[in-house]
Each structure stands twice: as C-alpha cells, then as structure tokens.
Simulated scan of single mutants.
Amino acid sequence: MSKQNWRGSTLLSPVPPVLVSCGSLEKPNLITIGWAGTICTKPSMVSISIRPERYSYNLIKESGKFTINLPTEALVRAVDWCGVKSGRDVDKFQAMGLHAAPGSALPDCPILEESPVNLECRVTQVIPLGSHDMFLAEVVGCCVDEDLLDSEGKLHLDKARLIAYSHGEYHALGRRLGTFGYSVRKKSTSKKRR
C-alpha cells in the first residue's frame, strides 16, 4: 500500500456531528459541533470545541451550561443549516421548525425535543487551544427517548438512526460489525443433546 505524507491535519473521521443547544428557554440557540468527545466516565464528562467568535461561545461561557443533542437522519438538514447560520442573525429553532424544552437536570438550559438523546452539561473548564477553545463539562443529566428502550430498559441507539460526519459529508450509520469484546469472547462448545 502506497501512502502520501501530508502535514498535520484534523482527519480523525468519522465524527458525530451534534446539535448543541444553549442560551435561555426564552431565546434558545443551536450550534452544530463537529468536535465533541467523551472525556471520562466517572464523573461523566464530555468536551466540545468552539471558535471564540461564534455566537454560541459567549452564551455557553457566560451561562456555564449547554446540552449536546444527538441528531438523527431526520435532523441532517438542521445539522448542516445550523452549522452555517449564526444565531446572531436568525432564530434557528424557529427557522428549522424545531422545539426547545427545559432540561431535566438543568431546567433553564434548552434541550432539542426532536433529538432522541440529550446530554445536559455543566462547564467545568474552558481551555484556549488556538483556533478553538475546548469546553470540558460534566454530564449532569441525560434524557433518552423511551422508544429506544426495550422491555428491560436496555438502550438501543441503533434504532435512533444517528448520523456521522466524514470529510465534508454526512452519512447514515450502517450495519453492526460486532459488539464490545466479541474478539476475545469464548465460543460456546456445548452441543445439543438428542
């Protein structure tokens, strides 16, 4: 296999594009974030990276909270549109026909009703890194659509039809290739009795 050598780049792909809601319930805003990630599990923490000149940057920095809303195939147009329009100029919820609701843990921070999973986040640290500042945040609440739960309460995110973003393109998530630990799981050796 032949490879070309390029200068350093942010080609870590695909990534989950997320719709981050912020502001107030009276004036909610959405921003599309391509750079979001899990930081740790205990406490549950995530990060988002935002350019300081973006409208949402100060809304989040001043309030100290935001919600990460996982988008579905049905929300892909809103994901793209909210990434190229500014909340300074337009009400993104209204323009896209979307609905803001109070969070469960942070009732004064809007969640996106149309999203099947909403992660309510409280900022713990802002780290200036260059073109973007990273907001580290603790996930203090999580709203999950009950349609994604089975009769035992297990979450099935595959039913949500979530999307991914890779090098300028949006993609539907495809088929399952395995489950965590499948590569080391011992195969059953029991034979059926007659």
Rank of each mutant, 00 (worst) to 15 (best):
Q4I: 11
P14D: 03
P16W: 15
V18F: 05
L19D: 01
S21V: 03
S24Q: 03
L30E: 02
I33M: 15
I33P: 14
T38K: 14
I39Q: 09
K42Q: 14
S44N: 14
S47T: 14
I48M: 02
I48R: 02
I50H: 03
R54V: 06
Y57D: 01
K61A: 06
K61Q: 02
E62H: 06
E62G: 05
A74C: 04
V79L: 02
V79G: 00
G83E: 00
G83T: 00
D91G: 04
F93D: 05
L98C: 01
A105D: 00
L106F: 10
D108Q: 13
L112S: 09
S115C: 04
P116Q: 02
P116E: 05
N118G: 02
E120R: 06
T124S: 07
G130R: 06
M134E: 10
A137R: 04
E138D: 09
V139T: 00
C142E: 15
C142P: 07
V144P: 03
V144M: 08
D145P: 09
E146K: 14
D147R: 08
E152D: 11
K154Q: 10
H156L: 04
L157D: 01
A160Y: 00
I163V: 11
Y165C: 05
H167D: 11
E169R: 14
A172N: 12
R176F: 13
S188L: 14
R193I: 04
